[in-house]
Amino acid sequence: MSIILIIEQVLNGLQFGVMLFLMAAGLTLIFGVMGLINLAHGSLYMIGAFAAAVIAGLTGSFILAIIAAMAAAAIVGALVEMVVIRKLYGSDHLDQVLATFALILIFSEGTRWAFGSFPLFLDIPNYLSGPVTLPGGIKYPLYRLILIGVGLFVAAGLGILISKTRIGIQIRAGENDREMIAALGVDISKLYTIIFALGAALAGLAGALVGAIQSVQVGMGEPVLILAFVVIVIGGIGSIKGALIGALLVGLTDTLGGIFLPELLKLFMDTSTAQTSGSALASMAIYILMGVVLIWRPTGLFGARA
């Protein structure tokens, strides 16, 4: 167990965390403003990854692929919002869960029908692959560093968007009192569609970026979606800041837990038992973290309302 390994794992945890943030930011915005719980957010992540894989295959350009991923996810998101989601704003959460679960079934099977069950591959372009040497002589993959950078950049951009721009004012006003801002002449349904498309584009971006280090396949979105739920429950629903801190906490806990829990248990028990119980415990670590946070603060770290 060396210091280099620890730094590497912390970076891996950060990278995982910022990608979770891209998912969680959309979910938390959509819940905060529209009061909608969207299970189909994972499908938008998948759509982004597939769009990127297809465009990268056709054009060979990674940048175009990323743009296509965001555009495809945003367009599908806006369409879904206008056709289905719009009817659900007034309904209770149960209907929202069911309708968005139905959307998952449609998107997943539709994608399987179009692309088959075999994973597609999206390659990291040459100029982004390979390791870089960090100060202290640590070699770390450039692409993962770029992901951390992109994630932090998006977080900063969202922060500015929400606190400084006109649309951000409308979003915050929408979270507080949607009747009032409608009465003030803001086209609330257009605002909703924009927020939904924005959240979808972030999910698509995450899908494409992560798709390049994992495989692009049907069902890739749901595990991430559930982790993103854990993130926003920890951070507090509706809070972008909460989503960022929650995402980093979850990313670091998951990554570091997988490495250090078995090592920690080896101090008390023999190696093979420590390995199995350590990895079993590590797979539960983020949910235990969530449980602890909720016992302490039932509405999450930065959440105002239940």
């Binding site: 139905a102 959307l103 998952i104 099977e109 029908w113």
Partner: peptide
């Protein structure tokens, strides 16, 4: 791909 129809029915 029957889940597509199930999804539509559910919606």
């Amino acid at each position: 791909y029957w889940h597509v129809y199930l999804g539509a029915l559910l919606l």
